[in-house]
């Protein structure tokens, strides 16, 4: 029974989560695109030269936060940079992609990117419990951060705990690559055959949490990731 549940989590649910994510994000973007254009400019002054580029710059570097909340900005930048690296490091597991040398036992960042995300998410979560941010937060804000924290913590466990054995990594990077390649090619093979060992349950929990994260994303404020450039553009153009 447990094996069956783990299989559902690691294979069919991944497909469901990805399809759900893609369709959900598209639906949300379509809703914005179908809405009537705002009848007048929303820009603030002074006007900036190359305003679209300024909007891009502001989207990715958040200078307004750096100016008003420098400590928060440090954690924001750490989080976003590390999260981007985390996505790359997972893609790098695929045999078709080579960011790290294929014979390296380590993921991109040697496990540090996961720790960086963990630290920043922990900061965001603690910040939510402190006034005045606590007063403007809603349950979804906490649950989303908690979900993200659990996901990265299990990821950290796989990165670090999985390697703390006499023989090095119990489940190797190549094993994860085989699993992801199987998903990519719709082989529907049970990953338990590849990702064997005591850490497999942690891997399954990590995948379950990541699936939940993907399924929640289109309904959550993480949609800001898709909207931020457009939003900043309204301020500048």
């Amino acid at each position: 029974m447990v094996d069956r549940i783990l299989y559902v989590i690691t294979v069919p649910m991944v497909y469901l989560a990805v399809v759900w994510l893609v369709l959900g994000v598209i639906a949300r973007i379509v809703m914005v695109l179908r809405a009537p254009a705002h009848p007048h400019t929303l820009k603030i002054f002074p006007e900036r030269k190359a305003a679209p580029l300024v909007a891009l710059w502001e989207s990715f570097t958040m200078p307004t936060v750096r100016k008003s909340k420098p400590r928060f900005w440090v954690f924001l930048m750490l989080f976003h940079a590390a999260f981007g690296a985390l996505i790359l490091s997972h893609l790098d597991l695929l045999p078709q992609i080579s960011i790290m040398p294929k014979d390296s036992p380590h993921m991109l960042g040697w496990g540090a990117v996961g720790v960086a995300v963990t630290i920043s998410v922990t900061y965001f979560l603690l910040r939510r419990f402190a006034s005045p941010v606590r007063e403007v937060s809603v349950p979804a804000d906490y649950l989303l951060l908690f979900l993200l924290l659990l996901t990265v913590l299990t990821g950290d466990t796989i990165s670090w705990g999985n390697s703390w054995s006499e023989d090095g990594f119990v489940i190797t990077k190549q094993d994860f690559g085989t699993y992801l390649d199987g998903l990519l090619h719709f082989t529907f093979e049970d990953p338990a055959d590849t990702l064997y060992g005591s850490h497999y349950v942690v891997v399954a929990i990590h995948i379950f949490l990541a699936n939940l994260f993907m399924m929640v994303l289109p309904f959550s404020k993480i949609m800001h990731a898709f909207f931020t450039v457009a939003l900043n553009r309204f301020r500048r153009v």
Binding site: R28, M31, V32, L33, A35, P36, A37, H38, P39, L42, V65, F72, R127, P132, V133, V136, S137, V138, D141, K221, M223, H224, F227, T228, A230, L231, F234
Partner: peptide
């Protein structure tokens, strides 16, 4: 409007 929808959806309540 498109902008207002983004204002409604885009806020992370970061404070």
């Amino acid at each position: 409007t498109n902008a207002v929808r983004l204002y409604m959806d885009g806020c992370t309540r970061c404070g």
